[in-house]
Nucleic acid binder design. Structure first.
Lengths: 305, 305
DNA sequence: TCCGGCTCATTCATTTTTGTATAGATGCTT
DNA sequence: AAGCATCTATACAAAAATGAATGAGCCGGA
């Protein structure tokens, strides 16, 4: 089995994404026969069938599905390389791609990045907001803001402090439905929580359980509003839909939310991480530093406010 | 700036590695003019000069050096993909690449992998022995044995226990030069240690210092035998050259080494890690499981012996 | 039912890429 | 200093990849 041309993987990826030779051809700027030939050749080189062809399009085989993450890594690496070359190497300019959770990206980063933009007008910032964490590994982003300690492996990582989570509600809600006096009272309230449980939520819930044994088990709580989006939860709390968990710093902003039962607290260790390869690139360095100082300020807002 | 053909990166990598168009051409199976044209085209597409050409070969520019890690990631991903396709997808066969420290790879893994090989004769095991840890990120290996906790990010990781380090010496050495009665005595002995200090060694030394304040600072010790290779240190201890640090399990093997000052102990948390993408591949699964159980046995040898 | 949308496959001319052969330049060894 | 190794650059012919055009099958809407 020979190593195929790397270009074939790019075509393969396009076909996987688009589901047909023709659509893939349009995406990559080739023609449909060429894309078809690329797939043929890749199948020959790898000695496996990749698609079952039909007039409606191509259906990927198990082999093709297994190959997809590799092709995506290749694409992410190439994109990362292009970013690395954007702008001059000795200036803070070009494209930087940051990944962060939705809530951080929407509520916290804009203020921080504003100053960076002002200082370096030729810097273009891409924000990839998602809670899936595999972005840095695949070079899908240059810099990541994380709530877990990153491995030291080939990463430059800086701890910026702990973001504290607490129970909050809008004053209007409390006025109407009363204020819970202890954790057990929460069972009587409209609670805002998660829809499906991801691995991260499960592990966090476990930590929470061991920290605060009084807190009712997540399974016992009757959630009255469920969404997987933290941002959706924050919006719901702000709209007075019920009691939910959010960052204490965010609760201080308008509309001001009231902190409930301050004995309920859950600190999230917060990190900024970057590929080691990028630390010599000024645009990444500058962005990294701005994020670190900005987030440090944000985290310590708790003390100031 | 257009995204260049991915193939050009492969040629680029070969030129970086070999240092000349001709040698690169031989490596990738092309001809020298073609390789030269590839580089030309890549330079045009990226809008940067990559090499200064000379009759002795090509000298990479800073840009080229900055691009190298990306090209290497591409190559590693492609190689990883090929491994993924080696052997049938529903059987434990094909190629698995494991990375581990030299000492684990030489002293511990062979016994563990022997049984695996017996059970699955069509399984080919590649061992990459090095203490640089960036292998998994770049898919340079499928499975890693690590002494640090890996990040959860897209990795399947299993803790197998703690490998204990202790001070050891060969009985012959002790007979001749006496047995130290406390940590301070070590200053009078021939100590076997590290040559240059890597980041890992520095951080480990710091941990060690805080665990055992009595232990003299590494800078104060007069090392009589220095090597960065842990394996070299083990060999030196076994040869009776002096007192050094090694895994207690290894000290029990022939030639049996004597443990000194058992109050000096340093547990290394040990992990087996694998890319999440690979957990469905039987050959990786089986190897992963074998490593976990094998290393668990090895770690608990302490209790048995 | 027919039409227009989509799909993939095939053919053939064109373009592009590649290899062969060769020239010129440098450095090392005899 | 000559010979032989290395290297890059260039010219031209051969091979390969590509695109345009076309045929044929499937599907949904008028």
């Amino acid at each position: 089995m020979n190593e195929p041309d790397w270009n074939l993987y790019r075509t393969f990826l396009a076909v996987m994404r688009k589901g047909s030779l023709s659509a893939a051809a349009r995406e990559v700027g080739l023609t449909q026969p060429t894309v078809g030939r690329h797939i043929d050749e890749l199948e020959v080189q790898l000695g496996r069938s990749l698609f079952t062809r039909s007039q409606q399009g191509l259906l990927p085989t198990d082999t093709a599905r297994a190959l997809l993450p590799f092709a995506e890594t290749l694409a992410a690496t190439s994109a990362s390389l292009m970013r690395q070359l954007s702008g001059r190497a000795d200036r803070v300019e070009g494209v930087v791609r940051i990944t962060a959770s939705e809530i951080i990206g929407v509520e916290v980063l804009p203020q921080i990045l504003r100053h960076l933009q002002w200082d370096y007008p030729d810097l273009t910032i891409e924000l990839s907001l998602s809670d899936s964490v595999e972005d840095l590994l695949r070079r899908e982003a240059d810099i990541a803001v994380r709530m877990t300690r990153p491995a030291q492996d080939a990463l430059v990582a800086r701890h910026v402090g702990e973001i504290e989570l607490g129970l909050h509600a809008h004053p209007d809600y409390l006025e109407r439905f009363g204020t819970p006096q202890n954790l057990a009272d929460l069972a009587q309230h409209s609670m805002i929580g998660f829809d499906r449980k991801t691995a991260f939520i499960r592990s966090t819930a476990k930590d929470m359980q061991s920290l605060m044994p009084d807190f009712p088990s997540l399974d016992d709580i009757e959630w009255s509003y469920r969404t997987d989006s933290n941002l959706g939860q924050l919006t719901a709390i702000r709209a007075g839909l019920g009691i939910g968990i959010c960052q204490v710093q965010l609760a201080r902003r308008a509309p001001t939310l009231q902190r409930l039962l301050p004995e309920f607290r859950f600190p999230l260790p917060t990190w900024v991480a970057m590929h080691e390869d990028l630390k010599t690139a000024p645009r990444c360095r500058a962005t990294f530093d701005a994020l670190v100082t900005g987030l440090r300020d944000y985290v310590t807002e708790a003390g100031r406010a």
